[in-house]
Design a protein around this nucleic acid. Structure first.
Lengths: 146, 146
DNA sequence: TTCTTATTGATACCATGTATCAATTAGATA
DNA sequence: TATCTAATTGATACATGGTATCAATAAGAA
């Protein structure tokens, strides 16, 4: 339930603009990540990729995931079934909520995080250049169905 | 530079109260984690433990680290040299800052995080039960020495 | 001191991710 | 369209980080 929609075309364009080739495997993987409601691991993405293209290699998937991460198109989720799952980078500064019941993700308004960082910089004197926030719990739907 | 100090005695007491035995290896490891200024991995802790007790086994260290984590005495740091480093749990709700230059940790006032969670719950309708925040950058000292 | 059992160390093992390298293919050029 | 070149791929072997097993040890209650 991302608040903005993701356009796989843009990801392909980003690949191209960075001088990478647009290949079948990469198209498939981009489609998989861009449309998943849940954080995906490379292994899961591999399984899904082989459904539409059985001979897809494992190493290729790991390489592509790394490439997408380096391009900033997907981002690693920490603490949800380990630290090996990825979600699309929706806003640059992400306040990601993950439901521990259904596993679905929601991108919350990140203004509060921006404020928090600003405040903490002022209060501590440290210069904050990077942040990682993950929120877990029960989403609206799962609360009702409980 | 934790804002509160850590008392290894308390950790040993926590072990004891949970029905675990207080052993030499565990005392050594507790001392190592409680006094480190930097996040430590199990592998690093193993190296340090063997300096004072050479025959210490690797599996034992991994098991002890897991035990300390389960007891809530140490907590995993995400995104600092992977996700395998641990720091003492100082406040229950942690706003941990890690300097990317010197690696030292600082526990910031976590009231802003409490507010953020409260605000996000109200705004999204999700019930937030768990959070993970990590801040990175340049600490006060490293900014001056730059 | 004895006894029971949690804990330990050595080892083998497993899972996740990475390096290698010949074969393939995107896409630029003719 | 055919040709060419290097990025990409798939298969495999490998490395790393962590776990299961099991006999030997030691904590701490009796």
């Amino acid at each position: 339930m991302p608040s903005k929609t993701i356009n796989p075309e843009d990801w392909l364009a980003a690949l191209d603009e960075s001088g990478f080739r647009v290949t079948t495997v990469q198209e498939i993987l981009i489609d998989i990540f861009a449309h998943s409601e849940y954080p995906l691991s490379a292994e899961q993405a591999w399984d899904m990729a082989r459904q539409s293209r059985p001979k897809t290699g494992r190493a290729t998937v790991y390489r592509t995931v790394e490439k997408l991460e380096n391009l900033g198109l997907i981002r690693r989720v920490h603490g949800y079934q380990g630290c090996s799952h990825f979600v699309p980078t929706l806003p640059e500064l992400m306040m990601l909520f993950i439901c521990l019941t259904c596993g679905r993700t929601d991108y919350l308004d990140s203004q509060p995080l921006e404020n928090l960082i600003q405040h903490s910089e002022d209060a501590s004197g440290h210069h904050i250049t990077e942040s990682r926030l993950q929120l877990f719990g029960a989403c609206v739907d799962c609360q009702q169905n409980a």
